[in-house]
Simulated assay, not measured.
Amino acid sequence: MHLEKIKTVDIIEAKDFKESYVKPLIPLVIKELSKDWPAREKWSLDYFAQEVGEVEVPLYNSEPAKGKELSRKPAARMLMKNYVELLKNGPTDLRIFFFNMLQKAPQLMGDFKYPNLGIKFFKKLPVLFFGGAGSRVLLHYDMDFANNLHFNFVGEKEVILFPHDQKTFLYHVPHSIVAMESIEFDDPDYDKFPALKYAKGFKVLLQPGDMLYIPSGYWHYIRYKTPSVSLTLRSFPSSFPKKAKFLRSILFTMHFDNIMRKLKGQKWVDYKNQKAIKIAHKATEDNKLL
């Protein structure tokens, strides 16, 4: 894979951010965007255990769904305070995905503010992500095609990004928003997945305080280096084509895939993976002819 280092700045003006990064869909790391937020000092694993410790949270891992299982089925559930202890006690593959602060922890809303970057935020969906050391988030793109500001507050995590048009080299699984779940994009097997050699993307190691701008439609893969907590603020795209893709994903793609899983089970999963391989390898051969 050809992975560029993502440009990093301390701060940026709203006009420059919108013109140089949002419009052309180029990722960026801003290091001091949250410097005056209470979250910068307050947020820690112990803080979340204290403030929302009694909230039960669904936990997810990176194991692929098998047979007739739904693709987003929680692997476990536990109280936040118990999950924090799990994170502190050693590596774990269990993650908290899409913890809606407004619904589950409104008392934390004063710990951050929406930055002035020239974009309109969807303020009903500030979400937190937690992960244990060594856990990973499978390569996927967000079905709502939002522009995401991903603020890392606790720990370190490595993020690999690809523009949406790289999907033919990424073993995109048909009728889904994910790549093949067996691929570790931070340690790819090029013998087994040769198309990956042609994929062009970006890579960054996020530190506490860093904000990563993930452009609309970008594929992202995450490896937690240490226990980590991050906040994502979303800005939905205004273009009609992306709104149409969002509606198609919500109304058709997810439902169709779940129906086929129930009807055909593992045969459907195997069929999709085989088709992903076929498409990617054809793209590889086509690329060699250019």
Rank of each mutant, 00 (worst) to 15 (best):
M1T: 11
I6Y: 07
I6S: 02
T8H: 01
D10R: 08
E13H: 13
K15E: 15
D16C: 07
P27M: 01
I30R: 01
K31D: 09
D36C: 05
R40H: 13
S44G: 02
Q50G: 05
G53V: 04
G53Y: 07
L59C: 06
L59E: 08
A65Q: 04
A75R: 01
A75N: 00
K81V: 06
E85L: 12
L86R: 11
N89Y: 03
D93C: 07
R95N: 11
F98S: 14
N100H: 08
A105W: 12
L108V: 09
D111R: 13
K123P: 14
V127D: 03
G132S: 01
G134C: 00
L138W: 07
M143A: 06
F145M: 09
L149R: 08
D165N: 13
V173A: 04
A179T: 04
S182G: 00
E184N: 15
P188C: 05
Y190T: 06
P194N: 06
P194A: 04
A199C: 10
A199H: 12
K203C: 03
G217W: 01
W219Q: 03
Y221P: 00
T226P: 03
L233R: 08
S235C: 04
S239G: 08
P241D: 02
A244V: 10
L251G: 02
D257Y: 08
V269K: 10
Y271N: 12
K272Q: 14
A276N: 05
A276P: 01
E285L: 06
